[in-house]
Amino acid sequence: MNQSITADHRTDKHGEVHSEHDPRLQHHFATFEQQLDASKIGMWLFLATEVLLFGGLFVGFALQQASHPEAFLAAHHHLDKSLGALNTVVLLFSSFTMVMAVHSAATNKQKALIRYLLITLACAGIFLVVKAFEYHHKWEEGLLPGKFYSHKGDTVKDQFIFFSFYFMMTGLHGIHVIGGMIAITWTLLKARKGTFDSTYYTPVDLVGLYWHLVDLIWIYLFPLLYLIT
């Protein structure tokens, strides 16, 4: 009897014949590789919608900045460049640890996988703490969006427009950071159970892609909000 005929008996593309079906391989996929590729396409489609979601805000920002250049220039001086740069470094480093986590999973290094996921999670936490300090400072000074803007002593009008965009863009980004932390925690719990190895690490890979997108968006937010001149 030729065991390679049914998909269930071809779980491994390295020639190992498994009589048991690996529960991590879904029945509609022939191989783990196919499953990973299909999942990646789905994830990239989701990331495309995320790019367009933020894209709307970026376009709005560009239009309002073009029509209120003085207000945007004056308003961005209220932001702390060094805190923004610190958060950029933290997020870039977390992207590095995330890709190392994926690499560890793909090379069967369970302990390294867990360690890198923990570091990534910690970096996300640091990012949010720094952001919370910044928000608190804005709140104290009344640098709030729209009609809540109550900063005293402005010489340039319409600065509330900048802060509307600042809070919506960094706020939506912050929500994504929190979502990423939840996803990383979930991956971490699975990793501790030993779910992932070099044949199956799709969730680590997909969470990694999502986390890099969060980093990618911050790469544009930082110069736009903090560094415009």
Partner: peptide
């Protein structure tokens, strides 16, 4: 795939 246990095909 002569080395059956080399599980790092696409890294």
């Amino acid at each position: 795939h002569p080395e059956v246990h080399d599980h790092e095909p696409h890294v």
